[in-house]
């Protein structure tokens, strides 16, 4: 079988800090995943459409500006509305612990905060991807 886990690494919102997103993208590649990186300033609509066209298993969003409570749930909703029921959606960035339960309720499966080893992200994806 030639199956590969496909991941969309997305930067929603306006912040330009893509160090984390790029490091994660490379680490995922080195873990054997196929990674599509969207680049900066992607709207929820763009992220959703890219996820659909690429039929990814995982959408991994990175956001450091504090707009996560607005943008992450919006992406989840749009992805589900498009019929992508199984897509694993995860997020990372400067996200206060207090916000994490709300994001999880909104359908973000995991939130990775600063200092998370890339290995934990890889393990989480391998364990939870459908």
């Amino acid at each position: 079988m030639e199956k590969r886990i496909r991941v969309l690494v997305a930067k929603p919102g306006l912040d330009g800090h893509d160090r984390g997103a790029k490091v994660v993208a490379r680490a995922l590649r080195d873990a054997g995943f196929e990674v599509i990186y969207t680049g900066l300033r992607q709207t929820p609509e763009q992220i959703t459409e890219a996820a659909l066209q690429e039929d990814v298993n995982v959408v991994a969003m990175s956001l450091l500006s504090g707009a996560h409570n607005t943008l992450f749930p919006k992406v989840v909703k749009m992805i589900r509305d498009k019929g992508m029921k199984d897509t694993l959606i995860i997020g990372g960035g400067v996200i206060p612990d207090a916000d994490i339960p709300g994001l999880k309720d909104a359908g973000v499966s995991a939130v990775f905060t600063p200092g998370t080893p890339t290995g934990s992200i890889i393990d989480f994806i391998k364990t939870n991807v459908k």
Binding site: R4, R29, D30, E34, V35, I36, Y37, T38, G39, Q42
Partner: peptide
């Protein structure tokens, strides 16, 4: 191209076509 070492790949073409996404 897929990396011959890890079997993974960065599929980087789409980023130059972002305006077509929507």
């Amino acid at each position: 191209p897929t990396s011959p070492f890890s079997g993974g790949a960065i599929l980087g073409d789409r980023i130059r076509m972002n305006e077509l996404t929507l």
